[in-house]
């Protein structure tokens, strides 16, 4: 049974966020029954607690904040605070979120930031607040401060994959590809099975290879291709992975067919670089990616059962990439 209240509203579309926030008042009313008013010793016999309940409260809180329904959001926050206490790390983070979103101007936001620093002075181990602080710095446009905050955080907690990923995103925003790739490699080290992060690493490698020329470009491109291959190894029919694989192999084929022989020996085994792949292998991978992409687009378009999960935009992009390939052949 699907329960839309349990889906985190952080990355959903505005339409689902508003749907969720409209369910808030009915949910809150349904929770305040006479059962919760029973005095202490008797209340022990009645179980009104469940994980779902508090997850729903948090999701509703986030959805209401997003849609600007601050009063309902505050009601949710209050229930959560009553249940888990003011000192709870997660609650502190949520309270910070509320204050941030109700801050009207930059000076009020700076006030929130000061409050975070005050909390961290007393107890620097509250990671939710440290993350919030970095996020506020980023949203205020103080990117380099955000980077410093994150590197400090990661010095003390180097296995925090979420923070590594955020740092990678920041570096990417600043255009420092090398650092971004390093951070993404750390993410992959902490969570080696995450197929989306493997693909993400491939994407950043591909982007950075566009800036380079010759042997370096070849090295990064083949690295990117290997990342995509790994993500496909971890996940069947991964549209993003096949898209990237086709993109990189197309580019690699161009490079390898026009490149000089001297490029082939550019890899340095001492540094741990692998030799660039052979043309035949790249060709095979390219054919595989093309046929798989065609299959995914076809099955998803025809609405086959069990193939409805791909996002519309991704399917359209894959189709365009395929069309570009066929046009080239016709010419």
């Amino acid at each position: 049974m699907a329960n839309p209240l349990l889906e985190a509203p952080t990355n959903s579309s505005p339409a689902t966020a508003i749907d969720l926030s409209q369910k808030a008042s009915t949910f809150i009313n349904s929770q305040s029954s006479w059962l919760s008013a029973i005095p202490y010793p008797l209340s022990l016999f009645i179980n009104t607690e469940s994980q779902e309940k508090w997850q729903t409260y948090e999701n509703l809180f986030l959805a209401c904040l997003r849609t600007g329904d601050d009063n309902t959001a505050y009601a949710c926050l209050e229930s959560l605070t009553n249940r888990f206490g003011k000192g709870n790390d997660r609650i502190l983070g949520l309270q910070g979120l509320y204050k941030e979103s109700t801050a009207k101007n930059d000076s009020e936001l700076a006030e929130v930031l000061k409050e975070y620093e005050e909390i961290l002075k007393n107890d620097p181990t509250i990671f939710s607040i440290r993350k919030r602080r970095a996020a506020v710095l980023r949203s205020m446009g103080r990117t380099s401060d955000a980077v410093t905050a994150l590197t400090n955080l990661l010095d003390q907690s180097p296995t925090d994959a979420e923070a590594w990923s955020e740092l990678a995103d920041l570096y990417l925003m600043l255009g420092s590809y090398e650092q971004a790739i390093f951070c993404l490699e750390e993410v992959v080290l902490v969570m080696p099975n995450s197929w989306n992060m493997q693909a993400r690493t491939g994407e950043v490698l591909y982007l950075s290879s566009e800036k380079l020329e010759g042997a370096d470009q070849l090295r990064l491109l083949s690295e990117s291709m290997r990342r995509y291959c790994r993500s496909l190894e971890l996940c069947d029919d991964y549209l993003r992975g096949y898209y990237g694989l086709k993109l990189t192999t197309d580019r690699l084929l161009e490079l390898l067919s026009t490149g000089k022989k001297s490029q082939q020996s550019s890899s340095d085994p001492v540094k741990g670089d692998l030799a660039p792949p052979s043309i035949d292998a790249v060709k095979k991978l390219n054919e595989l990616a093309t046929s798989k992409l065609t299959e995914i687009v076809r099955r998803s378009k025809s609405g086959e059962k069990g193939w409805d999960g791909y996002s519309e935009a991704e399917i359209i992009a894959a189709r365009e990439l395929l069309d570009r390939g066929t046009q080239k052949i016709e010419r």
Binding site: E100, R138, A163, D169
Partner: peptide
């Protein structure tokens, strides 16, 4: 995908941007 959080990053949610 349980690893999608690594790209959504709820801990670093930019709530003002979302609003």
């Amino acid at each position: 995908n349980p690893y999608a959080v690594l790209e959504e990053r709820p801990g670093f949610l930019d709530i003002r941007g979302r609003r």
